[in-house]
Simulated assay, not measured.
Amino acid sequence: MHAFEEFLAKIDRPEHRAEMEEVLAWVADTFPQLKPKIAWNQPMFTDHDTFIVGFSASKGHFAIAPEEATMNRFLDEIVQSKHDHTKGLIRFKWGQPVDFPLLERMIAFNIEDKADCTTFWRK
């Protein structure tokens, strides 16, 4: 998780930093083929130089951004789970349980769906 040390150090509250570190470590452990990197000052994971999932942190929550196409694919499930979301991300209030099963399905979908993608973002 060396790639994310500087990002994590900027999260002021230790409990928030630990929560974000747990989520990032979970992704790295669950999908070891993904490459961790910082881009646009955000932690993200890529596969063959294509975006798979990104994260951000703010005062009240952290967000998981898997790209709009993935959000659309899982929108019914996101709405049924009552996760706070926009068209491009899911927000989790600090201390709120992370929906790891949903996150795993979204990442797996992106890996499979973008297997032949030759660009960073979907076109």
Results as ranks from 00 to 15, higher is better:
86 T>P: 05
108 A>S: 13
73 R>D: 00
40 W>M: 12
52 I>M: 12
104 E>H: 12
82 K>F: 06
30 T>K: 15
99 D>S: 03
71 M>L: 12
118 T>Q: 15
89 L>D: 09
102 L>K: 11
42 Q>T: 13
38 I>Q: 01
40 W>E: 00
116 D>E: 14
77 E>G: 11
106 M>E: 02
40 W>N: 11
105 R>H: 11
51 F>T: 08
54 G>M: 10
37 K>P: 00
44 M>A: 07
105 R>S: 11
55 F>W: 04
59 K>S: 11
85 H>I: 06
57 A>N: 08
93 K>A: 13
97 P>L: 06
82 K>E: 14
89 L>E: 09
65 A>G: 12
70 T>R: 02
29 D>K: 14
103 L>I: 14
67 E>Q: 14
54 G>I: 03
36 P>Y: 01
116 D>A: 13
101 P>Y: 06
49 D>P: 10
103 L>W: 07
36 P>A: 06
52 I>W: 10
64 I>D: 04
97 P>V: 07
58 S>N: 04
44 M>Y: 04
79 V>A: 11
38 I>A: 02
81 S>L: 12
93 K>R: 14
79 V>I: 15
93 K>Q: 12
34 L>E: 06
35 K>N: 13
97 P>A: 12
68 E>Q: 15
46 T>N: 05
36 P>E: 04
31 F>D: 09
85 H>S: 08
54 G>Q: 01
63 A>C: 11
84 D>N: 07
52 I>Q: 05
32 P>T: 03
112 E>H: 11
29 D>M: 03
58 S>C: 02
103 L>T: 06
108 A>H: 08
93 K>W: 04
52 I>A: 06
87 K>Y: 00
101 P>G: 08
99 D>H: 13
45 F>C: 10
86 T>R: 07
99 D>C: 05
116 D>P: 00
46 T>A: 11
102 L>H: 08
87 K>V: 09
68 E>F: 02
116 D>G: 14
112 E>F: 03
86 T>M: 00
82 K>Y: 02
83 H>V: 00
56 S>A: 14
68 E>C: 01
82 K>T: 03
89 L>R: 10
75 L>E: 13
58 S>A: 15
30 T>A: 09
55 F>I: 01
65 A>Y: 14
115 A>I: 07
106 M>F: 06
101 P>Q: 09
67 E>A: 13
47 D>I: 01
29 D>E: 15
54 G>V: 02
65 A>K: 09
109 F>W: 15
98 V>T: 15
94 W>R: 02
96 Q>D: 13
37 K>N: 02
78 I>Q: 07
97 P>S: 11
68 E>D: 05
32 P>W: 06
102 L>C: 08
95 G>F: 10
74 F>G: 08
98 V>R: 05
75 L>G: 03
107 I>K: 06
67 E>C: 02
94 W>T: 04
66 P>E: 05
51 F>C: 04
58 S>Q: 10
70 T>P: 08
34 L>S: 05
50 T>S: 13
76 D>G: 13
90 I>Y: 02
61 H>Y: 14
89 L>T: 11
43 P>C: 05
96 Q>P: 10
41 N>M: 10
